[in-house]
Design a protein around this nucleic acid. Sequence first.
DNA 1: GTCTATAGATCGATAGAC
DNA 2: GTCTATCGATCTATAGAC
Lengths: 189, 189
Amino acid sequence: MPKAKTSKEEVLNKIIPILRNRGVQNSSMSELSKACGIQKSHFYYYFSNKEELIKEVLATVYSYFNHNLFKIINNNSSPITDKVLKLKSLMSKIFKVSDGGCIMANTALETMHLNPTYKKEIQLFFTDFISGLQLLLETNYPSEESFDLAEQIVQDIEGGILLMQVYNDPKYLNNAVLRMEKIILKNQQ
Amino acid sequence: MPKAKTSKEEVLNKIIPILRNRGVQNSSMSELSKACGIQKSHFYYYFSNKEELIKEVLATVYSYFNHNLFKIINNNSSPITDKVLKLKSLMSKIFKVSDGGCIMANTALETMHLNPTYKKEIQLFFTDFISGLQLLLETNYPSEESFDLAEQIVQDIEGGILLMQVYNDPKYLNNAVLRMEKIILKNQQ
DNA sequence: GTCTATAGATCGATAGAC
DNA sequence: GTCTATCGATCTATAGAC
């Protein structure tokens, strides 16, 4: 009966949406394990404790985002309009409208002031997000302005994700994405 | 006969910063009562349960913000530059940098997807925030554009509050406030 | 102060794959 | 027979509530 019927990767992928939706404090190990169809005790076989679990979740999300973001940006054969298109698609995958928005933002606000355990992963995520946008912007803007604009865009998007959830209306995130597009492509087309 | 040594208002004011900082899920009734120097059982005299407590907290924050916001905006003897100044000061009181940012945003992300209990208070807060800004903007912009800009400003500010906490750097909120100021006063002075 | 439920966490046992 | 994935029972602390 061994023969990993639920691998660690599967577990991570199954619980990410739950944690994004319910928050990390409000998701119990029992609940998470039940959702994976395995015993709670088996979770402790995969993860030494809940904190480790969450860390691995955030690292997984981070690396997925990071990998795909820079794959889009560093594709030299792709025109910038195409990059923007792909970026929009990546973002809609990461920031699920009906499923809790941005797990990095949620976890940040939920935990940042209690313990700084997850700070590193969260900061990495945002720093890369900003850096990626900055690279894109440098097509049309000087470096320093690109950085400021990149920060501003991320800020706009994260605020949009919040309002989207408060009013259950995707327009706020959509508006931010449209503004991003307009800024990136200002001289193009 | 007891001579309320800690009134309900005092309790609310004492626990608001704690709830903003630690989040509502992560603040226990014991912890909150201890911080007020009263018995936990006395909390249940003031509030029928934790949910009621949180509701009253959010209602308190909302009405404080609402009252002060519209007092600033509807003061006809005050020039718009003065209004902006007062608005900035109100915001820095509400969105404590080192103390958890915006309790409305935090609570929204923490609870919105679990139960919609606090939705009303949270939506009221943001709706009034946007409406207030819209009123200010109508000095210099047509009504519809004012509304869109007001939403955009709130979005920018809330995103700034998030990044401020992630990086422990007030510049993100400050930048948003500066952008707000610039937009509101575009033709002025 | 006491109740009950549930949280995170640990331990020992077991069922197959090699 | 060992190794690995899994389970069931259980412990302790603490939560909300009265």
